[in-house]
């Protein structure tokens, strides 16, 4: 299945399946075992030299460059978008033998979508908007759906919604399913990424179950975190979500994307999550149509590492364009 450059897949979207609690009711997730597997992913695999550089470039390709702050302004968003168009300095890009490179998407609040769309005009870089009362999601459903429609109307190509954690904590799967299905409908052609806020769900069983319900309701991506929970993306949580989307794919044939977000700051993190994707799901999940890294400061570290790769000298952040 081929993909367009900016991750808009030429494949059937997840149509959802309706709620099937028997797909996850008896799910067994052994936490110590998941932690062991997560801990050894990066000790069993490593990438060096050109391969390391290429994997870091790939991380940029898959990055949802994000700003989600209370003090975001249109100019701030424009600066971010400029970095999204030119994530690496020209010399570094040339040193890597690459002609063009952009990030996977830019992710902003709904009121910043219009600014982002303007700033990215002609770049083909999609704009993702968080919605549904991000980050807590505790707004009346009709307002949350209205927010999605607003963001789409503003030009967002992708909508990152948050689920109602209470539905998971209370085991109210039908409520969770119906909510996400309604959001998917509201998003229309825009792709839906369902943020599970795994730091709030606490147990890996909850993570698996919430992942499965979100996919059954039609989510195109499942995403770990808002970046605002106490604990954001971790490898064990990501491992369990990957296994859930693998299982969903086995049952339905639909390929669901995965987006870890929050807490990943280093080039090393970028490699670690890619190793997870390659080992658990395969190379297809190293492309932006099925994999995104939700991050903001990570790009700075990657750029420094890549400059070191090109020049052999350690780099300083102040010499690189700010995001």
């Amino acid at each position: 299945m081929s993909t367009s450059q900016h991750g808009r897949p030429n494949r059937p979207r997840n149509a959802g399946t309706g709620l099937h609690t028997d797909w996850f009711d008896a799910i067994a997730v052994n936490t110590p075992a998941a932690e062991r597997r997560a801990a050894t992913l990066t000790t069993r695999r490593t990438v060096k030299k050109a391969w390391q550089a290429a994997w870091l470039v790939n991380a940029i390709r898959c990055m949802d460059l994000t700003t989600l702050s209370g003090d975001d302004t249109e100019d701030r968003v424009a600066r971010l978008c400029a970095k999204a168009r030119r994530p690496l300095g020209d010399a570094i890009l040339a040193g890597l033998g690459l002609e063009a490179l952009t990030v996977g998407a830019v992710c902003v609040y709904p009121t910043m979508v219009a600014a982002a769309v303007r700033a990215l005009a002609g770049s083909q870089i999609p704009v993702a908007s968080v919605a549904t009362g991000f980050p807590a999601g505790l707004m009346p459903l009709d307002l949350r759906l209205a927010e999605i429609r607003y963001a789409v109307d503003q030009g967002a190509d992708e909508i990152d919604i948050v689920i109602t954690r209470a539905h998971v904590l209370g085991g109210e799967w039908a409520a969770l399913h119906d909510e996400v299905a309604a959001m998917r409908e509201a998003a229309g052609a825009a792709h839906l990424k369902a943020i599970l806020a795994t730091g709030d769900l606490k147990t890996l069983r909850n993570v698996y179950k919430a992942s499965m319900v979100a996919m059954q309701a039609g989510a195109d991506f499942i995403k770990t975190s808002t970046g605002k929970e106490g604990v954001n993306a971790t490898l064990p949580v990501s491992l369990v979500m990957c296994r859930a989307l693998r299982d969903y794919g086995d049952r339905t044939g639909f390929r669901i994307g995965f987006k870890p977000a929050g807490g990943m700051k280093t080039a090393k993190d970028a490699i670690a999550w890619q190793i997870l994707m390659k080992e658990e799901l395969g190379n297809d999940w190293l492309r932006p149509d099925l994999f995104r890294l939700g991050a903001s400061s990570m790009l700075g570290d990657i750029e420094r590492q890549l400059e070191h790769h090109v020049t052999g000298r350690y780099a300083a952040a102040y010499r690189h364009a700010m995001a």
Binding site: K48, A50, G97
Partner: peptide
């Protein structure tokens, strides 16, 4: 050593001795 562009296609691990 392969080009970065080539590795981006294969996404191999490459040698790490």
């Amino acid at each position: 050593m392969p080009k970065i562009q080539e590795i981006l296609e294969t996404m191999d691990y490459g040698p790490a001795p």
